[in-house]
């Protein structure tokens, strides 16, 4: 073994590195929350498509989930970032590529669409655990399909799905690290950047690990509160 390595933990707070890590954390949180909002909206829509009685809609929902979850997020990001603008044709793609903060938009959309497929899948499992008679009970009171989903089935399924969604919410923050590969200055990117400038990547990444750990624990605490507020009384004992 060679212990000739000189540890320099000051790269975690020394100017400008401390600020870089904090900015990185801010970006990670921003990306995570923004992507989550898209993911929930799209995920609920896709998850609901998968249980409608229309075969075509169900197939669209299933195709969405299968495509997004069977391709690595990194490949999806590269596709959206490098190939995405090209899909709009040459003129438009040049304009898109000039956009300020393009990588950030792509990150949020890419991460959001990917996470949506996972939310849709959890929701489908939630829907599947609701009995057929429950649907019948709602309809027998005269409610329409739309009202049934809006007031009873979706809120119920979402509550059943809170535990897996909590895990998914944590995963979003971890997955934001992938967008460092398209140059977004989030937390992992910054710790890598510190290595490039100081050659003390070990300390920087160790520091970043503990920041992620703290972030994760904070999210768990927060989701605990959400769960307590929305849990179905007596159904999920804690």
């Amino acid at each position: 073994m060679n212990f000739a390595y000189d540890f320099d933990w000051s790269v975690l707070w020394r100017d400008p590195y401390g600020v870089m890590l904090i900015k990185g954390l801010g970006m990670t949180i921003f990306l995570g929350i923004s992507a989550w909002i898209i993911a929930m909206a799209v995920g609920i829509a896709v998850g609901t498509l998968r249980i409608t009685k229309y075969r075509l809609l169900r197939m669209i929902g299933t195709a969405y989930v299968e495509v997004f979850r069977n391709i690595p997020l990194l490949v999806q990001m590269f596709f959206w970032f490098y190939a995405g603008p090209m899909l709009f044709g040459e003129t438009l793609s040049r304009q898109i590529n000039r956009l300020d903060g393009l990588a950030i938009y792509v990150s949020i959309i890419g991460l959001g669409l990917y996470t949506a497929s996972r939310i849709a899948e959890h929701l489908r499992a939630g829907f599947a655990s609701i009995s057929k008679d429950q649907y019948h009970a709602v309809l027998s009171t005269g409610m329409t399909q739309v009202q049934m989903y809006r007031y009873v089935i979706i809120p119920y399924a979402l509550r059943l799905t809170i535990p897996p969604l909590t895990t998914e919410f944590l995963t979003v923050f971890k997955n934001t690290s992938i967008v460092m590969t398209i140059g977004v200055a989030e937390l992992t990117f910054q710790s890598y950047q510190i290595d490039a400038e100081t050659f003390h990547g070990l300390e920087a990444t160790t520091g970043a690990m503990f920041i992620y750990l703290l972030l994760g624990m904070t999210v768990v605490k927060f989701m605990d509160l959400v769960e307590r507020k929305y849990k179905i009384q007596g159904l999920m004992g804690r």
């Binding site: 009995s131 008679d133 429950q134 709602v138 809120p155 119920y156 159904l235």
Partner: peptide, 8 residues
């Protein structure tokens, strides 16, 4: 048979 109240 199984009531089917809205649990939430």
């Amino acid at each position: 048979q199984r009531f089917e109240l809205y649990p939430h």
